[in-house]
Write a protein that binds this DNA or RNA. Structure first.
Lengths: 206, 206
DNA sequence: CTGGCGGTTGACCGGTCGGTCTACTACCCT
DNA sequence: AGGGTAGTAGACCGACCGGTCAACCGCCAG
C-alpha cells in the first residue's frame, strides 16, 4: 500500500491525528490503524507513546522551520514585510489543513504545549526548545529591521518573544473561531503594533 | 467535611483539576473523589462530563470577569495603565495557582480551547462567547483610550482582538517556560507594541 | 544450509474510561 | 401518618487505554 517505511508512516500519521484531535484523544491503536500496522510494530520502533511524540515533535519542527519559517523570512524583501509574509504562510497552512470535521487545527506545538506541559516534563522541555529556536529566528529578522532603520532602538530578543506570543495567540483565535483568515488579519494589525502607528487599522468612518 | 452543596463542590473541584492537568486527563471518578462524592451523585447533577464542563466554564468566566477583568480595567486610572494592570493581575493569579507538580497552569479557557475545540462543538461554542465577551470588554477600554487621545485613530475592535491574542500568547509562554513573571514582562512590551515607540524596551547598551 | 536478526503478528494484561442502574435514605408537603 | 422526591450509595457495563509477550517470517551473512 504505502511503502514509506513503517517508522515514518507512524510518525506522520501520529502527527496528523494529534494535530486534528489532541494528544490524549489519539490512542496508540488509532495511530497503528492509520499506519496499517499492528501494535507490536509500534513498540518495535518506539518505546512508548511519549517517545514517538518526542520524535514527531522533532520531525515536525524540522519541516516547519525548513518549509514555512525560513521561506517566509527569506531575505528577498525588507524585514518587516517578511514578518507579514510569515502570518500569511501560517494562515495558508491552517486553511489547507482544515478538515470538514473539526475545522482549524491550530499550531501543533501550541496545542501540545497547553495540553501536556503540566503533565509530561519531557514533552514540555522539547517544546520549550522549539519555541526558543523559533524566537531566535524571529529575533534575527527583527535585529535586521532595527539595523536597517525600520525599528530603531528595538530590543530584538524582547520583541521576538512578544511577536511569538502574538503569533501563537493569533493561531489560537483562528482555531476557536474556526477561521484561518483571522491570522492574516491579525498579521496586518501586528504590522501596526510592531511598527507604531503606520499601517494602523483605520477607525470606521463614523 | 465540606458543606457547600455537592453541585458547587463538583464544579469547583473539576475546574481546579482540569486547569492543573487537562480535560481529558481528568476522569469523572477523579472529580468525584475530589468532591467526596460517589458517581451516582455526579450524574444526578450533570448529565455528562461535557455538561459539567459547560457549567464550569460559565462559573469560571463569571469569576474571572468579576474578580480579575473588571477590577483591573476599573476606571480609577488612565485606560492604558489599566491594561498594564490587567497583565499584572493575570501574572499574580498564575503565580498563586502555581503548583509544585506541574507548574504554571495557564489560561483555563485557552487550555480547554486548544485541547477540545476540534472535538467538542458545544465546548468550542461556549468558549467562543467567553472570548468574544472578553474582547468586547477590552475594546471598551481601548475606545476610551482613543477618545482621551492616548491612541488616536484606533479601531478598538481590531485592536482588542489583537490585544486578546497577545494576552493568550503571553500566558501560553508563561506556561511553557513555567515562569509567571513572563506575563508581566510581556505586558510591558505590549505597552510598547500598542502604544508605538513609547515605553519600548531599550536595546541593551552595546 | 544455517544461523541470527530486523520486523511483524495477534493474543493478552490490568486498569481506567464515561456512563447506567437499582436500591436506599432523608426530608418536605399534604 | 403517608407519599413523593432530591440526593446518595455502590455495584456494574462494554469499550478502550498504554503496554507486553512469545511466536513467527523472510532476508542476508557465514
Amino acid at each position: 500500500m504505502d511503502d514509506r517505511d513503517t517508522r515514518k508512516r507512524l510518525l506522520e500519521g501520529a502527527t496528523e491525528l494529534m494535530t486534528a484531535r489532541s494528544y490524549q484523544a489519539v490512542g496508540v491503536q488509532a495511530i497503528c490503524d492509520r499506519a496499517g500496522v499492528r501494535k507490536g510494530s509500534f513498540y518495535h520502533f518506539f518505546s512508548s507513546k511519549q517517545a514517538l511524540t518526542l520524535a514527531a515533535i522533532d520531525a515536525l519542527w524540522q519541516w516547519f522551520r525548513d518549509r514555512v519559517l525560513e521561506p517566509a523570512l527569506a531575505a528577498d524583501r525588507p524585514p518587516l514585510e517578511r514578518i507579514e509574509r510569515l502570518f500569511e504562510s501560517i494562515a495558508e497552512v491552517q486553511a489547507a489543513r482544515r478538515s470538514p470535521e473539526g475545522g482549524v487545527a491550530g499550531c501543533p506545538f501550541g496545542n501540545l504545549a497547553l495540553e501536556m506541559s503540566t503533565q509530561d516534563e519531557a514533552i514540555r522541555a522539547r517544546l520549550e526548545t522549539v519555541f526558543a529556536e523559533t524566537e531566535a529566528r524571529l529575533a534575527a529578522t527583527l535585529a535586521e529591521a532595527r539595523d536597517t532603520g525600520a525599528l530603531p532602538g528595538l530590543d530584538p530578543a524582547a520583541a521576538a518573544r512578544a511577536l511569538f506570543a502574538y503569533i501563537e495567540g493569533a493561531v489560537m483565535l483562528a482555531k476557536i473561531h474556526d477561521d484561518p483568515t483571522l491570522i492574516r488579519e491579525l498579521g496586518r494589525t501586528a504590522r501596526f503594533a510592531l511598527l507604531g502607528r503606520e499601517g494602523s487599522p483605520e477607525a470606521p468612518a463614523a
